[in-house]
Nucleic acid binder design. Structure first.
Length: 609
DNA sequence: ATAGGGTTAG
């Protein structure tokens, strides 16, 4: 390139009057150019070439500083290029190290940020106030817990830990790694907290399935506002986390209040907020509201909004509507993501549309160039398995290009339990024992399978090995929102102050059920082991307590919404159908995996779940 | 030049 430098600089000389001797370009001229030029790759390359031609030393830290910074600021950033420029500098400044770490932290491949930091340490360049926030962002993305803990320790030694920015980053980091207790420990000790601090800790709990802590912290945050401490007003980030927590709890009334607040403060135009609202309403079983938010989003609608509604419709048993929405999306020439397609396959599998599922799977690759991931293959296994084509589902697993994981085998085991396929079920179990031993849900599925084919000895053998292995079944609980509160019921719960009345109501329900010709099944063992501890009668399954309580406490004719952490057992499903008819109530139960809209003695899942 | 947000198969 050097040889051609004369020629390269000559094109301007072809134009008449040739300037006799242009001002000799200098390092500073290049730097000035880098700061003022249009921020495009082409412009930066041109300046880089110019620097080479005019023999500016490429190893000069000042040039590297500006060139690396400008390259890192591009999106997408040409990281290999930026890194090559960076590598040429023997003594980069802390600023340049930070720039490089940030570039990786914000890229899809944050791993090399660690290497840059290692080089920084080796070069004896001490970190400054910016280094750890960038580095922790990369480590949070990588969920590199050990490395992050080391950085935490270093920051305590060199004093950087006292900075709010570093503390915020640590809170975020621990939350992203799933260690919300550690996040909270850092949070607790912070003498100074700002909006980002609160958002980070609230999101940390929201990400890790702790919705109640989210609500508590939100209250604390807004209470502190009036008092002495901070000057924090919730923003869009805070409210998205809050809406997430409401969605998880199924707290529709609280979610609606948040919605009203959003309108009041003008945050409803924020597309992330809109998406969170769609998700909230869909996860609370209120499809009309989800649709309304979607329609009102206007230009704020993104592919995520479409995806959220597609998944939401599928979740609520409206697979046909989900697929119709996808067709509209295609007509509008929007480009679906791999998650959109996952939603579409999910819709097919929840509605038994096997052929549609295969068609979409093929189109996903052919038309959209999306490489199917294990999640997509998992959907296909579910699609076949649910439809009773269990052998085909097994062949599908055997032939899929990615290594089947525990979830895939669990899907097959579930299908085997549903369709009484003992041999394949035991084969799936054998793989699960290797891949994810001690998973209580797998014991439940296999036990159901044994019970379904009448192998009671095996049921008891499995039960014993479960006890011996210390495998604890997830206790079932149900949530129901009334007024401003979310009430939680566990199996056989007597802790509620109105326990007495609830159990009286259950008696009354049982009486009316018998009049309708319902007889509790004697093969309860199946249902029993499936979902709740077996000591207590089916009557006291957590959702029955919640339904009885809601019947007592809410106005006649109003819908009852229950959120359950496990799957509804067959007996409760039947009973809830009958209650919806006898008491003329719409009852919406959100299962571990789907919705059941009970109305007039029937369920939206068409008894297929 | 500093930190944070939504959708995902059982």
């Amino acid at each position: 390139e050097v040889a051609s430098s004369e020629a390269a600089s000559s094109p301007s000389s072809s134009s008449p009057p040739p300037t006799p001797n242009p001002k000799p370009p200098t390092l500073h001229r290049c730097v000035a150019l880098l700061q003022t030029c249009p921020k495009t790759l082409a412009a930066l390359k041109q300046i880089h070439a110019h620097a080479i031609r005019t023999r500016v030393p490429l190893a000069h830290p000042l040039l590297a500083k500006h060139l690396v910074f400008a390259l890192a600021a591009l999106s997408p950033s040409p990281l290999p290029y930026a890194h090559r420029v960076f590598s040429l500098v023997p003594n980069p400044t802390v600023f340049t190290f930070n720039t490089m770490i940030r570039a990786y932290a914000e890229s899809p491949i944050p791993g090399p940020a660690l290497l840059v930091h290692r080089r920084m340490r080796a070069a004896g360049a001490p970190p400054d106030s910016h280094t750890y926030p960038f580095l922790l962002k990369a480590l949070a993305k990588l969920m590199a817990l050990r490395d992050g803990e080391k950085i935490h320790a270093q920051s305590l030694k060199n004093g950087l830990e006292t900075l709010v920015f570093v503390q915020n980053s640590l809170v975020h980091f621990y939350g992203a790694c799933g260690l919300f207790e550690s996040a909270y420990k850092v949070f607790e000790r912070m003498p100074e907290r700002n909006l980002v601090t609160w958002n980070s800790i609230i999101n940390g709990f929201a990400l890790n399935g702790r919705p109640n802590e989210v609500l508590t912290l939100f209250r604390e945050m807004t209470a502190e506002n009036g008092g002495g401490g901070g000057d924090v007003e919730p923003d869009g980030f805070t409210l998205v986390s809050l809406l997430c927590a409401c969605a998880e709890l199924g707290a529709l009334a609280l979610g609606r209040r948040v919605h009203l607040y959003l309108i009041k403060v003008g945050l409803y135009r924020n597309s992330h907020v809109g998406n969170a609202l769609i998700d909230l309403y869909a996860k609370c079983g209120s499809v009309e509201d989800a649709h309304k938010v979607f329609d009102e989003m206007g230009v704020a609608k993104t592919v995520v909004s479409w995806t959220s509604l597609i998944v939401g419709l599928a979740l609520n048993g409206l697979g046909e509507e989900a697929l119709e929405l996808f067709r509209v999306m295609e007509r509008e020439r929007l480009v679906p993501t791999e998650i959109t397609l996952l939603g579409v396959l999910y819709a097919c599998s929840h509605c038994g549309l096997v052929d549609d599922g295969f068609r979409y799977f093929d189109r996903m690759r052919e038309e959209y160039g999306i490489v199917p991931k294990i999640e997509h293959y998992g959907c296909m296994v579910d699609l076949l398995g649910r439809a009773g084509r269990v052998e085909e589902a097994h062949d599908y697993i055997a032939n899929m290009p990615s290594e089947p994981n525990a979830v895939v085998w669990r899907t097959l085991l579930g299908a085997c339990a549903m369709h009484k396929k003992l041999d394949l079920g035991e084969a799936a179990w054998a793989r699960l024992v290797e891949l994810d031993p001690g998973h209580s849900g797998d014991y439940v599925l296999l036990s159901n399978l044994y019970a379904a084919v009448g192998r009671w000895a095996d049921v008891h053998r499995l039960r014993r090995s479960m006890l011996k292995g210390g495998v604890r079944k997830t206790p079932g609980h149900s949530l129901v929102e009334l007024g401003n509160y979310v009430y939680e019921f566990v199996m056989g719960d007597r802790s509620h102050p109105e326990s007495e009345k609830i159990y009286e109501k259950l008696e009354e329900i049982a009486k009316r059920l018998r009049l309708e010709g319902y007889a509790p099944r004697t093969t309860n063992v199946l249902a029993d082991i499936e979902e709740e501890e077996k000591e207590t009668a089916l009557n006291y399954h957590s959702e029955r307590l919640a339904i009885a309580f809601a019947l007592l406490k809410s106005a006649p004719g109003t819908p009852i919404r229950i959120v359950k952490n496990l799957r509804v057992c067959a007996d409760c499903h039947l009973v809830t159908k009958l209650i919806s008819k006898i008491y003329e109530r719409e009852i919406v139960v959100r299962d571990r995996s789907r919705f059941h809209h009970f109305r007039g003695g029937a369920c939206s899942c068409k008894d297929y779940w």
